[in-house]
């Protein structure tokens, strides 16, 4: 069970764009092995940074509109949102400590 919030085109504005704290968004799919590789890291980070960082997951198969809106054509792609704006976008799987660096300066 994932610790991140399942993001959809319906809840994206409320959960991400209007979030009072930074949000780490993971674009992924079932069939993507590197996505499954970083899945446990994303879950760990959601627990470790609870209250300071929100973690959301976008399944690109179910949410083609969101994937298209952010031009996602490589997964996993990690994005960091702050005050409704994209502050970082990183394609490719990363070790946990490297993912932490993506948002550390935004907390």
């Amino acid at each position: 069970m994932s610790a991140g919030i399942e993001l959809t085109s319906k809840n994206f504005a409320a959960e991400v764009e209007q979030s009072p704290i930074p949000v780490l968004v993971d674009f992924w799919a079932e069939w993507c092995m590197p996505c499954r590789m970083i899945g446990p890291h994303i879950d760990d980070l959601a627990k470790t940074y609870a209250g300071r960082l929100k973690v959301g997951k976008v399944n690109v198969d179910n949410e083609a509109e969101l994937a298209g809106r952010f031009n996602i054509i490589s997964i996993p792609t990690l994005m960091v949102f702050k005050d409704g704006k994209v502050v970082r976008q990183q394609p490719g799987a990363l070790p946990k400590q490297a993912i932490e660096k993506l948002f550390a300066d935004q907390l």
Binding site: M33, P34, I73, S74, T77, P91, G92
Partner: peptide, 17 residues
Amino acid sequence: FAGRGVSYCATCDGPFF
């Protein structure tokens, strides 16, 4: 163009094309 059409993983990114 890494992550915008340039890829090193066929199983990850192939389905987008």
